[in-house]
Design a protein around this nucleic acid. Structure first.
Lengths: 204, 204, 204, 204
DNA sequence: ACGGGCGGGACTGCCCGTTGGT
DNA sequence: ACCAACGGGCAGTCCCGCCCGT
């Protein structure tokens, strides 16, 4: 855990934040597909080549945020016996608050793009999947379950999807809704809805 | 319901099936990224330009199948009072059986790629999302609910994800597992796991 | 001289006018380069292939007008001893009035594009050159000069360019200026300016 | 004035000259339209992609020459009170001599294409127009006139067209005529012809 | 760490020839 | 005889990779 970033890393994050800022500005005014890497580079006073040193693809400049790495650390700190739904709420809350406090407009702009642009939507959902496996692994470890436990995986997936649903709604409301409240709502709805699915005797 | 395709459409589907066949063969032997459109075109005896007339992107040649359109019709035929989980099982079963009966090797090859290649995984998950909205809309219509009903959407998402999970497992087993059985298992697990999430009093 | 068009030709011209109308509408709202032939075809209820039966290239849909052919006939009708500048004024006036009377908005839209879009500007200037040769030939014939007479060709070119200059100004004024007056002004200025160029003794 | 090119720029110009050489050779033997970028690239030992780094379009490989930039500098050096016709002769002479001395065959090949291929002709004439504005601006500045002065613009246009006419004749003679003499002739003819146009009282 | 040169591959748009259906 | 659909060819743009100098 390199919790202490070091000056090199700090500078890097600052540069990335600047580039992302220019990129989001351009995406908003001209559209994602219509904005080229060259334009982003020019606006950021770097060469196109350097852009790719910071972000491996054009998509990543939207997906990236400085708190990505923190989530793992947060997870590790939760007590082992905490209910899974509760853990998710806490971690989500922490991640969101970090981003939201720092720069709400940027979070909104990123979310709008991630849910609007098909390509970004795809990459984002892929990320979320990976998050599921990470989360599932962490839970399994702390409770002595197999990491590929069926119930565990399906449940975590459903929970993450609830968070995604909430983010989508929040973005669609132009940030006027309360993101955390939406997360709570979605999880409650999940419990309510799924409980209604009676287990079925398989007849195939 | 243009259930009667007409000779033009039939020919188109046949061509697409042929191209997809060649493409999957090349992807398997040389890898997805390493195979170029030119090679696929050459193997299919068409020009690269024509490839794009049938499949707008390289990804689509993997994603596409001839039963996509059928799902909507299947849904419309289900009784309005059927439990949502049951409907999903039936529709899934029908779609899968159509593909499986017709060409199991092809279905497996496609699934392997879709869960293995990051780009395809992303696009596929994006598709699934759209399926969720479609499904949600159909259910809402047949039961007089709002199409953006919270409980409905979250539940459908969770169910679809269970199907996706099953497909992933099936593909990972090289097609040796029973896909339909896996779907049933996943849905059952979902019910079991989520029921365990107690509803929480919101404290924000 | 097929001065009597015949019903076939009439129908053709009507179709071309309709297609041009839709095209200009789309160019105005989305821009020339951003509008595709497919869109024009769709808006005109024809197939893309048919578009090319009427207009060989995308550029031609802007350049074309129904009076192109008439100019030759007009020229032939002028008296053989009329001063060249005067003939040009008369023919220009006739052509412009035909277009202007019929559909001033369309003439303006076409001019705006022709002077604004580099590609169209180029093609248009090329057209004008051909007009020069046509005009030069006509004059030469009526006065017993060689068609490649130096003085004749250079003079006609200068006169045509004066008309082009006037059109440019007119278009830049959004059609508020008086096109015919601008033509007169330009020709007068040409006389004044060139007279000031003293002939030089060649020293090469 | 970055009159000192620097080694980077020198290398660039050399590469462009080489590519242009191969291109002209191919155009001459197979025709302009029949020669593809791929062939030019292959003959020049570069990738098609790289071709477009040097020349944005296929047309530019014909239009380009290494003295384009010099013209502006030449203009700036002329005395402010020089008659406009004289200035044009001097600048033209300088530009042509630079090209002619260096590689007369190349100049001829380029000119042949520029006056023969309709597309190139169009682009070339468009260029000339821009030259008019440049020239007009320079003259206006040095004589305290408005840059959009009518007499000035029309006159400059007519003069440039005379130079174009001369180039056309020269190219048509396969380079056997004397380009500079043709320029002088054309300017003289212009004076003679235009003087003959009596100013007219507008009767509209 | 940064920039520049170069290459490669996906993809689009224009345009044209041919074929099949009406 | 006309016209829509189909297939193909080429120019051109963009993302993104590698290698090289600084």
């Amino acid at each position: 855990m390199s919790s202490v970033p070091g000056p090199r890393e700090r500078r890097r994050v600052r540069t990335m934040r600047e580039i992302q800022g220019e990129a989001l500005r351009l995406f908003e005014s001209h559209g994602y597909a219509e904005t080229t890497i060259d334009q982003i580079a020019q606006a950021s006073d770097i060469s196109p080549r350097t852009f790719f040193r910071y972000f491996p693809t054009k998509e990543d400049v939207v997906l990236w945020d400085e708190y990505d790495a923190v989530i793992g650390e947060l997870l590790a700190e939760r007590p082992a016996d905490e209910p899974i739904g509760e853990t998710l709420r806490v971690v989500t809350r922490a991640a969101i608050e970090g981003l939201y406090r720092h720069d709400p407009a940027r979070l909104l702009a990123r979310n709008k793009l991630m849910f609007t642009e098909p390509v970004l939507r795809g990459r984002f959902l892929g990320f979320a999947r990976e998050g599921v496996e990470q989360l599932g692994g962490a839970f399994a470890a702390s409770r002595g379950l197999e990491p590929d436990d069926l119930v565990l995986q399906v449940t975590v997936t459903a929970l993450i999807d609830a968070v995604i649903w909430a983010s989508d709604r929040w973005q669609a409301s132009d940030g006027k809704a309360d993101l955390l409240a939406l997360v709570d709502e979605a999880i409650d709805a999940l419990v309510e809805g799924v409980t209604g699915i009676s287990r079925v005797s398989r007849t195939s």
